[in-house]
Amino acid sequence: MEPDAVRRGERVHHGGEPDPDVLDFSANVNTRMPDGVDAVYRDALERSRRYPDDEYPDFRAAAAEYAGCDPEQIVPTPGGLAAIRLAIEVSLEAGDQALVPAPSFAEYAREVRLQGAEPEFVAHDRLLGADPAEYDLAIACTPNNPTGDAYDPDALRAFADDCAAAGTPLLVDEAFLGFTDRPSLAGREGAIVARSLTKLFGLPGLRAGFAVATGERRDDLATARRAWNLGTPAAAVGAHCLRDGGFVAETRERVAAERERLREELAGEFDLHASDAPFLLLDCGDRNVDAVLDRAREEGVALRDARTFRGLDSHVRVAVKDRDANDRLLEVLADG
Rank of each mutant, 00 (worst) to 15 (best):
Q97H: 15
V212N: 11
G167T: 10
V292Y: 02
A62Y: 00
A64E: 02
I84V: 15
G311C: 10
G268N: 12
A130R: 09
E2A: 09
L170T: 01
L197Y: 02
S275Y: 05
V320G: 00
L128C: 08
C284Q: 06
D305L: 05
V6T: 07
D324V: 13
A123C: 10
G285D: 03
A277S: 12
G285E: 05
V301H: 04
D322C: 01
A249F: 08
L329D: 08
L99H: 05
Y108P: 00
C69T: 15
L128Y: 10
D4G: 15
D244F: 10
E264Y: 02
M33D: 04
R50D: 12
R113C: 10
V12Y: 15
R47C: 07
R85M: 12
S26Q: 07
R295S: 15
A61W: 02
A150H: 00
F270P: 05
S184P: 09
E299D: 14
L312F: 12
L171W: 00
L333Y: 04
F270V: 08
D181A: 13
A94V: 08
S48P: 11
V6C: 05
S184Q: 06
D125W: 12
G167K: 12
D294T: 14
D38M: 10
D38E: 14
S26Y: 04
E189L: 06
E93H: 13
D43F: 10
V90W: 01
Y51L: 15
V40Y: 04
R218H: 08
A175H: 13
A61Y: 05
F201T: 06
D324A: 11
E134T: 11
